[in-house]
Design a protein around this nucleic acid. Structure first.
Lengths: 238, 238
DNA sequence: CGACGTGTTGAAGGAGCTCAATCTAAGTGG
DNA sequence: CCACTTAGATTGAGCTCCTTCAACACGTCG
């Protein structure tokens, strides 16, 4: 059941088996449903089987910030569950299937099989790398660049999951959500998208993105996929 | 030598002993020296014994983004070293003493003693939590609020390390660096600081910050220290 | 059909940027 | 101990990117 998509680190058959044997409970969530709410105690993690999810924090004033987007195979909420207390919420983008796994089972496995533990640790570190890139994106790039960058990231990630190609993919995020993910207003997101279209970099229809010229979009968004750490690092010897 | 400052998780004597016994090499860095450079391969981690350091990324256009600030006791660069390849640089703020520890020794220890491993994992997760808060800070707060928030964070962290109190501390960051940490321009940082001063929330002299009214500053910066996870979470049972 | 969520567009205003000059403190060499 | 240098802090003026407010369009769904 559990896709051992963490295989960006080499795991042998026994290890893969152990992962598949993790106790879990399948659930389906509808659009906008919460997997976890801020300030909640949480003692399980969620593995996304299908669908998308995103992390968000709400400021005092009610302003929302989306700080990560997750796709199938991602272990959403290793973070909150290991910390024990949720410092942010996780919400589902569209209907999604999720496997609940008790924290204890995960931690046990991680330390029983160092390779698996290393893979999970590695996973949370890659999340951190993406956070850093988002900080740069929001702090130092113009509206159009931010959007272009985000579109590139989605393209590359979806492609790496076999959910489309980087130059043509479907992605169910509203412009308001894009705004909260880029630190802009919905209005400006719209104008930035239009701008990219006018320059012939992308075209859109029903939340389907088609990239006209990948190389140009990449440059427009100052995008370099290194921060996604998609290729195996070295052996991560244990 | 190595302060077992990771003791925000309960570790017994043997474990503490093992940490102290980690092989390491002491070095001193001068102001602005690099601990790690972007795109570099790295196979060691650095523990900050004294002084401060910060992480930064540089965009294509040359714009800099500072995405984290570290203080004594922090294990800088667990991130880069475990990932094997540095997606960002780490630079020292002022003269600092650093202990180099080989990656292998760290990983071995982490999996030999699950409590220690958990503590280290936890540590990287807290870093992640701070990244998320910074994203919110930069994406959704005004200039003055961003600065206020950052000053609050520094105050609380320094206090928790016994390096000053939250309402009066010394911190060696230039306004240009503050700008890169908040996504603003140096000029606007200056004006924001002045603004906070005028409102009586802080006063400054030689990079020494005195907080006039902590509660007001906290509110001005929309600050809530939960994201720092300073209090022990629950037992993090292993 | 009406209503609501989302996308689109216009117009006006402002927070923050850019450019550039001035000031200050801390070195540095003599 | 002083003239000279330099990094950083400060201030002003003008401009722009992005926001705000508001109206309207469009598709879906009850």
């Amino acid at each position: 059941m559990l896709r051992k998509l963490q295989l960006w680190k080499q795991l042998d058959a026994t290890e893969a088996q152990a992962i598949l044997a993790l106790p879990h409970e399948l659930r389906t969530f509808e659009r906008d449903a919460y997997l976890v709410r801020e300030r909640q105690k949480v003692d399980h993690s969620c593995l996304l089987i299908s669908g998308f999810a995103f992390r968000q924090k709400i400021g005092r004033n009610g302003a929302r910030s989306i700080n990560a987007v997750h796709m199938q195979g991602d272990i959403v909420d290793l973070q909150n569950s290991l910390l024990g207390y949720a410092d942010h919420s996780v919400q589902v983008l569209s209907r999604a299937e999720v496997a609940y796994i008790p924290r204890k089972a995960i931690v046990d496995l991680a330390f029983r099989m160092p390779n698996v533990g290393m893979a999970m640790w590695y996973d949370t570190l890659v999340d951190g790398s993406v956070f850093r890139e988002w900080i740069l994106n929001i702090a130092r790039r113009s509206g159009e660049k931010r959007i272009a960058h985000l579109l590139c990231e989605f393209g590359v990630r979806l492609e790496s999951l076999g959910l489309g190609s980087r130059s043509s993919y479907q992605f169910p995020m509203t412009q308001e959500q894009l705004a909260d993910a880029t630190g802009l207003t919905p209005v400006h997101v719209n104008r930035s998208l239009k701008g990219l279209e006018k320059r012939g970099l992308i075209s859109r229809a029903m939340r389907h993105v088609t990239v006209g010229d990948w190389e140009k979009l990449r440059r427009a968004g100052d995008f370099d996929d290194a921060y996604l750490h998609l290729e195996h690092a070295e052996p991560s010897s244990v």
